[in-house]
């Protein structure tokens, strides 16, 4: 009797163990690309309306907006406990134009898609880069910012084109970033020096172990402005991505309202004002036109 229970228990445990491992790997991938849903109830999610329509939000008097609370200068909390930043400046305007109060929800990169899939927030405004993979799970509105790769190098030898990089030169990248994947895929001849963390890459670059450092252009621009003696020789490299607000898949009323709002705000140069209020301290005025997208229209270079 006792042994039979042991066998049954062992069998159950094994099953649970496999389930456990499966869930682990699901979460792990959610962490990596920030856009994977857990498999729980994926079937039923399609049939159920999780989101609130524009009218429902207006009637409730509060809009739930998911923002970062620790990504200065895009979304952060100041010393008085108030949300601030480029995304928040836009969120405040959305609240005002909808005529409702804003409930900010502190989101993490890894859970932004989940919040929309479950309708726990109405809008995500958290430095959300538009990708095809994410667009299958959420609906992106028109963009309000550009992101691309950038390359920073010392003033003594400014790299203004990838051709400036000699065959013995090494370029510093952070593992797992778009800079690494882009250079490895498009310029396989360039030797990469890879670091796991931002701090290590920064140290190595400052110690001169590479001729240049490739990363998101917002990151390298901020670095060059804080550290005299370095110049961003290549401010835009590779495919240009955009940052946009996102709503739950299928929430057309809210999506259309947001698109109209972004177009209307373009007439008053709202996002330039946003940049000047929130990003100018970090990026300076030089990059205003290359980073800001006004009226949802991305300029082609």
């Amino acid at each position: 009797m006792k042994t039979r229970f042991k066998t049954i228990a062992a069998g159950l445990l094994l099953t649970l163990g496999i389930a456990g491992i499966a869930s682990c790997s699901t979460t792990a991938s959610a962490g990596n690309d920030g856009a994977t849903a857990t498999t729980t109830g994926a079937g039923s999610a399609d049939t159920k309306v999780v989101y609130r329509t524009l009218d429902e939000i207006k009637a409730s008097g509060t809009v739930n907006i998911g923002v970062f609370s620790d990504k200065n200068p895009f979304g952060y909390v100041d010393e008085n406990g108030e949300y601030q930043g480029y995304d928040v400046y836009f969120a405040e305007r959305i609240g005002k134009d909808l005529g409702v109060n804003i409930n900010y929800v502190s989101t993490e990169a890894a859970s932004r898609v989940e919040y929309l899939e479950t309708g726990k927030v109405d809008i995500v405004l958290a430095n959300f880069t538009v990708t095809e993979e994410r667009a299958q799970k959420v609906d992106f509105a028109l963009p309000y910012m550009n992101v691309a790769l950038g390359v920073v190098s010392p003033d003594s030898r400014v790299i203004t084109s990838l051709d400036d990089i000699g065959e013995n030169d090494q370029v510093i990248v952070i593992s797992g970033t778009t800079a690494e994947t882009y250079l490895a895929a498009n310029n396989p001849d360039i030797k990469l020096q890879k670091y796991d963390t931002y701090a290590n890459a920064k140290n190595a670059f400052e110690n001169g172990s590479g001729v240049a450092w490739a990363n998101d252009n917002t990151e390298v621009i901020a670095f060059s402005l804080q550290n005299p003696g370095y110049t961003v020789g290549i401010p835009e490299l590779g495919s240009q991505d955009t940052i946009a607000p996102a709503v739950s898949k299928g929430n057309e009323t809210l999506l259309n309202w947001l698109n109209d709002e972004i177009k209307a705000l373009g007439t008053e140069n709202f996002f330039h004002a946003d940049y000047e209020a929130t990003l100018v301290d970090t990026y300076g005025l030089d990059y205003e036109n290359s980073l800001v997208v006004e009226g949802g229209v991305v300029k082609q270079n």
């Binding site: 869930s23 729980t40 109830g41 859970s111 899939e117």
Partner: peptide, 20 residues
């Protein structure tokens, strides 16, 4: 066996997806 983080995601997001 379940990491607490997985349990948190299951309860917070999972209950919404499955039972609303």
């Amino acid at each position: 066996i379940m990491p607490q983080l997985v349990l948190l995601f299951l309860v917070f997001f999972g209950t919404t997806k499955v039972w609303g």
